Structure formats: C-alpha cells, structure tokens
Simulated scan of single mutants.
Amino acid sequence: MSIPTAQRVVQSERHDGVLVITLNRPQVRNAINRALAEAVDAALLLLEDDPELEVGVLTGAGGHFCSGMDLKAFPSEGVPRVADRGLAGLTRAHRTKPLIAAVEGAAVAGGFELVLACDLVTAADTAFFALPEPARGLVASEGGAIRLPARIPHHLAMEMLLTGSPLPAADAARHGLVNQTTGEGDALDAALALAGRIRANSPRAVRLTRQVVAATRGLDDDAAFAVQDPLTAPVFGTSTAAEGASAFCEKRTPDWNL
C-alpha cells in the first residue's frame, strides 16, 4: 500500500531530468530523524542510479529548509547517519551529479551541514544559516567545522562555529556562500532555473568537472594536474566533445544523446 504524499517524510518529484527532494516534517522545521535520513538517502541513491536524472535539488516544506538533527529522537536514535554516507546519507557521500540546496527560512545545525554538502545554493532573502551545536553540548561534526572555514572568511566562520551566531542569506551571498538570493518563497524556482542551465551542458562533462574539483581539493598545482589529467584526457576524443565543437561552429544546440 502506497503512503499518501502528505504523510511522507520526504517527497521526491521529477522535473525534466531534475529530482526535487523535499524534506517534509514541517511541524518540526524538517528536523532530521532516522526515518527522514533514510528517505533522503534513498532519494539521493535514486538520483545517482537513474540515468534520466542529471541534477538534484534539496529543499524543505513549510517555509523552512531544516532545523538539524531531531533532538527529541537523538537519545533513542543517535545521530541519523546512513551507512558511511553521513548525515541523511549526504554529508559524507561520494556523489557524481550536481545537487542544489534551495533554502527558505532556517538552515541550522545539521540542516546547514546539508547545505554545505551541496554544490550550489539558492536562498530566499529571509533565510538564515547557523551552527548552534556548542549551545547543545555538541559539535558540528557532519561537515560544519570542516567545510564552513573553507567557504567564508576564517574569522566569520569561527564566530559562527563558536558562538552559534546566525548568518542572514544576504550576508551569506556577499561572502560567496549562496549563488543567488530570491524573494521569500522563490528559492526552489531559482534552483530549478539553475538546474536547467546545468542540464544544457554535457552530462558527462558536468560529472567529470565535479570529480576533478573533489579529487584535487587542497592539492598544490603540480599534484592537482597529476590527478586531473588522467581523468580528463579521455574526454577530448569522445563523440560528446566532437558534438559540442560542431554545435558551437554551426550555431545550434548540442545533442548530447548522440
């Protein structure tokens, strides 16, 4: 028997090659319990495994992105990691396809760590981000303390990590943490538009570019090129590359299915 959509803790919908994954526990600002974590993980695995899906969008229902780990469930369920893929199957996962966070309202604690695990971010101008774990006797151990200092100025990251101070979406965008801010309620539409721009490109080239970025992070130039070149060299002799060049010269849209 199928579960009515309104009762699902995660909703997954297809939009022309884009999988929209919606956290659906609005009564608790989409806090992550075990059931939600496993449902997000299943959706992300679907995104990875289905060749018709090229981009994912992660968002939240009810005007908020995610308030983090469900602290009421924590004593009995522990941290809702899934296998070796981290919180909600995302924060430590090795993905190949782009994932965009569409943020409304609060993205705090583990919810912010989900955002930091995504590739791009759209956010309503009323959204905000925070890592208040120390106030709960916890540590932002699912990527917050690792990723945030690499994304924004060091001292601002330390202020957020040590005090729990929130960062409004406008400030997050000013520091490069958010790709695009929108009016309230429009973050998902902006994310879908961004996904459409990604989908206009070669899916293979997009995945390979993500792989290069992930594989060379933190390396010096010589080491980075040594890692990159074996990954990228084969693509220059493919029919995909030939189609891209031909389409450019002929002033037409490439057909990436050739």
Rank of each mutant, 00 (worst) to 15 (best):
R34C: 12
R34S: 15
A35K: 10
A35H: 11
A35S: 14
L36W: 10
L36S: 13
A37M: 14
E38Y: 12
E38Q: 15
V40Q: 07
V40D: 06
V40Y: 09
D41C: 14
D41K: 05
D41A: 15
D41Q: 08
A42I: 01
A43C: 15
A43T: 11
A43S: 15
L44D: 00
L45A: 08
L46C: 11
L47F: 06
E48W: 00
D49F: 01
D49V: 00
P51L: 07
P51G: 09
E52I: 04
L53Y: 06
E54R: 10
E54N: 11
E54T: 10
V55M: 08
V55P: 02
V55I: 14
V55S: 05
G56R: 01
G56Y: 03
V57F: 02
V57H: 01
V57E: 04
V57G: 01
L58P: 01
T59W: 02
T59H: 05
T59G: 06
G60C: 12
G60S: 11
A61R: 02
G62W: 14
G62R: 11
G62H: 13
G62E: 14
G63S: 12
G63I: 08
G63E: 12
G63F: 07
G63L: 06
H64G: 03
F65L: 10
F65K: 00
F65E: 07
G68C: 09
M69E: 12
M69N: 03
M69W: 06
M69S: 02
L71H: 02
L71Y: 03
K72W: 14
A73P: 06
A73F: 11
F74H: 14
F74M: 15
P75K: 14
P75I: 13
S76M: 13
E77F: 09
E77A: 13
E77G: 10
G78R: 13
P80F: 07
P80T: 10
R81W: 07
R81H: 12
R81E: 04
V82P: 00
A83T: 14
D84T: 15
R85D: 10
R85S: 12
G86R: 01
G86E: 00
L87A: 12
L87R: 07
G89S: 13
L90K: 05
T91V: 06
T91I: 04
T91Q: 05
R92D: 11
A93L: 05
A93I: 00
A93Y: 04
A93C: 06
H94C: 03
H94T: 11
H94Q: 14
R95N: 05
R95K: 14
T96R: 15
T96I: 02
K97I: 10
K97D: 12
K97H: 12
P98H: 15
P98F: 14
L99D: 07
I100H: 07
I100D: 10
I100R: 04
I100Y: 08
A101G: 06
A102V: 12
A102R: 03
A102Y: 09
V103Y: 01
E104R: 02
G105Q: 02
G105F: 02
A106F: 05
A106W: 02
A107V: 14
A107P: 08
V108D: 01
V108W: 00
V108L: 08
V108I: 15
V108A: 06
V108N: 00
V108C: 08
A109G: 00
G110W: 00
G110M: 01
G110F: 01
G111A: 11
G111S: 09
G111D: 09
